[in-house]
Computed example of a mutant assay.
Amino acid sequence: MDASVWARHVNPRSGWSRVSILPAFTAAVWSRTWIGWWSLAPIAAVLIWTWLNPRLFPPPTSTDNWMSKGVLGEQIWLSHDSEPTLAHHRPVVRSLTVIGAVAAILLLVGLALSNLPLTVAGLAIAMLSKLWLLDRMVWVYQDAGDESPLPISEGSRRMASEHSNRPTMR
Score class of each variant (00 low, 15 high):
Asp2Trp: 12
Ala3Gln: 12
Trp6Asp: 00
His9Lys: 02
Arg13Ala: 15
Ser14Met: 03
Gly15Trp: 10
Trp16Ala: 12
Trp16Glu: 05
Ser20Gln: 01
Ser20Arg: 02
Ile21Val: 13
Ala28Gln: 06
Val29Met: 09
Val29Tyr: 12
Val29Ala: 12
Thr33Met: 00
Thr33Trp: 02
Trp34Ser: 13
Gly36Arg: 07
Trp37Ile: 07
Trp37Ser: 04
Ser39Asp: 06
Leu40Pro: 00
Ala41Tyr: 02
Ala41Thr: 13
Pro42Gly: 01
Ala44His: 08
Ala45Asn: 04
Ile48Glu: 01
Ile48Ala: 14
Trp49Met: 03
Pro54Arg: 02
Pro54Lys: 01
Leu56Asn: 00
Pro60Phe: 02
Pro60Asn: 09
Pro60Ser: 09
Thr61Ser: 10
Asn65Gly: 11
Trp66Phe: 15
Met67Ser: 14
Gly73Thr: 03
Glu74Met: 11
Gln75Leu: 07
Leu78Met: 14
Ser79Asp: 15
His80Glu: 01
Asp81Ile: 00
Ser82Lys: 14
Pro84Gly: 10
Leu86His: 10
Arg90Ser: 13
Val93Met: 15
Val93Tyr: 00
Ser95Gly: 15
Leu96Asp: 04
Val98Glu: 00
Ile99His: 07
Ile99Cys: 07
Ala101Pro: 01
Ala103Asp: 05
Ile105Ser: 06
Ile105Asn: 00
Leu107Thr: 06
Val109Lys: 02
Leu113Glu: 13
Leu113Lys: 13
Pro117Glu: 10
Leu118Phe: 08
Val120Arg: 05
Ala121Arg: 04
Leu123Ala: 03
Ile125Lys: 02
Ile125Phe: 06
Ala126Met: 11
Ala126Leu: 08
Ala126Ile: 05
Met127Gly: 13
Ser129Met: 08
Ser129Thr: 05
Ser129Asn: 07
Leu131Phe: 12
Trp132Lys: 03
Trp132Glu: 08
Asp135Ser: 13
Met137Asp: 01
Met137Ser: 01
Asp143Ile: 05
Ala144Cys: 11
Glu147Tyr: 11
Leu150Trp: 01
Ile152Trp: 07
Gly155Leu: 06
Met159His: 06
His163Ala: 13
Ser164Gly: 13
Arg166Ala: 14
Arg166Trp: 14
Arg166Gln: 14
Pro167Gln: 11
Met169Ser: 03
